[in-house]
Every structure is written in structure tokens, then in C-alpha cells.
């Protein structure tokens, strides 16, 4: 057999275990989850008889799940906005030939190395209304900044946004900084020569050039926030009146505490659909352009 053909076969053979594993553990399991979500398995003993869309109907009629979807939307939008704004601001500031740049950069980034569980534990203490930062504000004479934080149902979700932004805004900072450093100096000089002010330079040259970076950040942070679980679980749980509840927490409690497997599977399928809406076009577009390049 010619060497090239033998190598072709070998290539496929080497890939096969990984492809098979992902095929089963991702696509096979998703298929099974969909199947469970259409069954009557809502007690400790498996019952896979067909129930149609009944579980989905129950879910969408449940106050808790409605709150989950609302919270996910609010969380995703505010968290993304905060990370993009803070990340961009910090990147621009660091790009001003700052002394101690790497120190600042490391301080902004280190939370990314930490587990959401640690973050949740820490911020649960910090935002406890009777201790935490409220105490600090008082001792600094800033008592007006006191807040009920995650105990006030209307605004509790923003406490979680705060903790999540603490953890992940360094990521957008790093991406924007890499993007800024990738913009050719000549381009900026040319704009300055044309008499552009710094504001116009950023508004009309730099920000548009950074659009691909923004898109990447939105995809990465967006899919994290759509499936967020650990941080909420460790920090607030589902919160007063489900004000900090998210589908991930509801799925976990429904399935593994309440033994309502079919409903839990239904929540999981909806989470998957939300993430897919964001990810599939990106993957499709991304890999196609990569193939053309």
C-alpha cells in the first residue's frame, strides 16, 4: 500500500477514539437528554413512557422558571455591558505607556485563575448586608453607599453581576489590550496627521477596528453567562423570590434534589438551545472563513 494512503488510514484511526468519545458524550448524551425531557420520569424510579411536551409546558408555566429566563436575560446583558466597558476602559488606560503596566495587568487578570466557588464564597461575605462592604463604607464615612445587596429581590441579581464582573472583566481587558497593540502605529499616525482629535481617533478608527475582538468577547462571555451555575450556587443560591435563580441552579435542584428528572432534562435542553443560538452561527461562520483563509 502506498505510504500516503496508509497514513490517511492511520490519521482516521488516530482521530477515531476522540471523535467517538465526543460523539457519544456530547451528541449521544444530548439526544438522550432530549428523550428524557419528553418522558414521564419525574420520580425516583425511572419511567420513560412518552409524555410529549408536557414537561416543557409545566416549566414555562412555573413562576420560578419564568424568573430564571428573565434573570438570565438581565444577567447576560448587564454582565456583558459591564465587562466590555470596564475591559475597554482599562485596556485604553494601560495603553497610555503606563509605568507598572504588567503589575496592573496581573492584578486585573488574576481573578480569572480562581474558581467560581471561591469567588462566590468571598462575595457572599463581602455583600452580606449586615457585615461586608457595608461596614467598610460606614467606617469610611460613606454610609450613604450602604445597600441591601442580594437580600433585596428587585436588585439582587446585580450583586451576582458584580461578582461575575470582578472575575471576568480582566479577560476583556486582556483581549482589548491585545487588539489595541495589534493596530499598526502608522494607521493612528495617519489619522492624527489628518487632524483627528483623540476622541475621533478612538470613535472612528480604533473602536471599529476592535469589532472582531468585541464579537469574540461577546461570544465567550455570553455563553458563560447563559450557562452560569457555580457562582450563583455558591454565592446566593436562588435568592429571595428567585431573584438570583438561573436555569443551571434550577436544573440541578430539580433533578438531583427533587428527583424530577424529566423536568430537569427539559431545563437542560432549553439551556442548550439558548447557547446554541449564540454559538452555532459563530462556529459556522468562524470555521468557514478559517477554511477559506
Amino acid at each position: 500500500m502506498p505510504r500516503l494512503n496508509r497514513d490517511r488510514i492511520l490519521a482516521v484511526a488516530v482521530l477515531t477514539p476522540s471523535v467517538a468519545a465526543v460523539g457519544i458524550f456530547v451528541y449521544g448524551f444530548i439526544g438522550w437528554t432530549v428523550y428524557v425531557s419528553l418522558s414521564q420520569w419525574n420520580s425516583f424510579v425511572p419511567d420513560l413512557s412518552f409524555a410529549g411536551l408536557q414537561n416543557y409546558g409545566t416549566l414555562f408555566a412555573t413562576v420560578r422558571f419564568q424568573a430564571d429566563l428573565r434573570n438570565t436575560l438581565i444577567f447576560t446583558v448587564t454582565f456583558l455591558a459591564a465587562c466590555l466597558l470596564i475591559g475597554f476602559l482599562l485596556a485604553v488606560l494601560l495603553d497610555q505607556r503606563v509605568r507598572g503596566e504588567s503589575l496592573f495587568r496581573n492584578i486585573f487578570l488574576f481573578p480569572m485563575a480562581i474558581s467560581f466557588i471561591v469567588t462566590g464564597t468571598a462575595w457572599q461575605w463581602l455583600l452580606n448586608p449586615s457585615t461586608g462592604v457595608n461596614l467598610l463604607f460606614e467606617s469610611l464615612g460613606l454610609g450613604a453607599l450602604r445597600s441591601p445587596w442580594y437580600t433585596e429581590p428587585r436588585t439582587a441579581i446585580f450583586s451576582v453581576v458584580l461578582a461575575a464582573t470582578w472575575q471576568l472583566s480582566g479577560f476583556t481587558m486582556a483581549m482589548y489590550l491585545a487588539g489595541l497593540r495589534g493596530i499598526p502605529e502608522e494607521l493612528m499616525e495617519a489619522a492624527r496627521m489628518d487632524g483627528a482629535s483623540e476622541w475621533q481617533l478612538y470613535r472612528h478608527v480604533i473602536v471599529p477596528l476592535l469589532h472582531p475582538v468585541t464579537l469574540s468577547a461577546v461570544i465567550v462571555l455570553g455563553h458563560i453567562s447563559l450557562k452560569i451555575f457555580d457562582l450563583v450556587f455558591a454565592m446566593t443560591g436562588s435568592g429571595p423570590a428567585f431573584s438570583t435563580d438561573v436555569p443551571g441552579v434550577f436544573m440541578f435542584e430539580t433533578t438531583f434534589r427533587g428527583n424530577r428528572f424529566a423536568e430537569g432534562a427539559g431545563i437542560a435542553v432549553i439551556m442548550l438551545a439558548l447557547v446554541a443560538v449564540l454559538i452555532v452561527p459563530y462556529l459556522w461562520y468562524g470555521t468557514r472563513t478559517a477554511a477559506e483563509a
Partner: peptide
């Protein structure tokens, strides 16, 4: 009551405490 009722009971009361 069975566990699946208990988790729903907790949820309902949790909501009631606020609303």
C-alpha cells in the same frame, strides 16, 4: 410528603416570603 413535593413547597414558600 414525598421529596418532589417538598422541593416545590420550598419554592412556593420562598416566593411567598417576598411577594
Amino acid at each position: 410528603a414525598p421529596e418532589d413535593f417538598a422541593t416545590q413547597f420550598n419554592d412556593i414558600v420562598n416566593l411567598f416570603v417576598t411577594r
